[in-house]
Amino acid sequence: MGNFVFDLIGKNIVAALVICIIPLVFILPYALIAILGELKIGAWMQDRVGPMRTGWKGVLQPVAEVVKLLQKEDITPTIANKPLFNLAPFIVFIGAFAAFAVLPFSEKFIPSGINLGLFFVFAVGSFAVIGIVMGGWASNNKYSLLGAMRSVAQIISYELPAGMVFLSIATIAGTLDMQTIILNQSGPIWNWYIFGGPQGGAIKFLFIPFFVILFIVYLISSLAETNRTPFDIPEGESEIVAGYHTEYSGMKFAMFFMAEYANMYVVSAIIVILFLGGWSSPFGTSFMDGPIWGIFWMVGKAFFFVFVQIWLRWTLPRLRVDQLMYLGWKVLLPLSIACFMAIAFLAMIN
C-alpha cells in the first residue's frame, strides 16, 4: 500500500502536483481511445468500416476530431447567460475529474488514499448535476433546459440504487476505502465479490446471487448516471436535439464530451473495484501480479466495461423518461435495498 510518487520524491508539494496530473494525463489518451472504440466498434457492429482516412485504418480519427474541436469557432449565443454558460463545462468536468482522486490504478498508486473513497465518488457526482443544470439553463434554449431537467432527475434518481450497492459492499468489506476493498478481494478469482467475496464455506454460495443482482443493478445505474444508451434521454438526439449541450461548440463542447468519457471510465472502474477485484490478477497472487500488472488489470477490466457501454449504445433503443423513473424507483431501488438487507443479515450471521 502507498503511493509510489511519494516513495520516489518524498512527501512534498511537487509530489502532490504530480499526483494530481497523472489522472489528467491518463484521461486524455483514454478519451481518444474510447472515441476510436466508439467509432470502430459501432462500425464493426453495423457492418461498415468506419473512419479509414486518418492514419492507418483511421486510428488517428479521434486526434483529428479533437483538433477540429480546438479549431472550431467558440459560439456563445447572444441571449445566453455568458458567465454561467462559460462556467458550466468546467464544473461538469471537475465533477468527472474529481472522482479520479480516489480511483486506484495499482496497489502502488492511488491519488488520494482517503478512507472514504466510495463516499467521495458518490458525493462529487453532484458536481456534474450542478454543471448540467447551469449549462442547460444558461443556454437559454428550451431544448437545453428540458435536457438539463431530465438529466438531473435521472442522475439523482439513479444515485440511490448506486448508493445502496456501495452500502452493501461497504457492509461486507467493513470499509469505504477503495484499496482495502480491493485488498479484501485479492487472491484467487473466487475471492472477488461477484463470486461471493473472500469468505469461505457454504455461506459463500448464499452471497453469490445477491452480489450478482447488485452487480447488475450497479451496471444499469451506472449507464443512467453517465447518460449512456439506453438511458441517453438527456441528450436523446431525436427528441431534444442534444439536450443540455445543444448550444455548445468547440472547446466547451469538448469539455462536456470529455467529462462524459471520463465518467464512463469512473463508473467502469468502480464496477471493477467493487465486484471484480480491482487491480488484482484473476490468476491469484502468484501469476501476473504486482504493481505494474495491477495497472494492466485495473485499466483492462475497466476498459471491458467501457466496451460494454459502447456495445449497448449501438444495440439498444432509448427508454422514455417515465419508464426510466419507473425502472429506477420501482425496480432497482427496492431490489438493491432487499439485497443490501440480505447481505447485511448474512454478514451478521457469518
Partner: peptide
C-alpha cells in the same frame, strides 16, 4: 473528512440542486 464529503453531498448534491430547481 467525513464532514467535508457530507457537506458536498448534502449541500451541493441535495439542497443546492433543490434550490436551483
Amino acid at each position: 473528512d467525513f464532514l467535508a464529503i457530507s457537506q458536498i453531498m448534502i449541500y451541493i448534491g441535495g439542497i443546492l440542486v433543490l434550490i436551483i430547481f
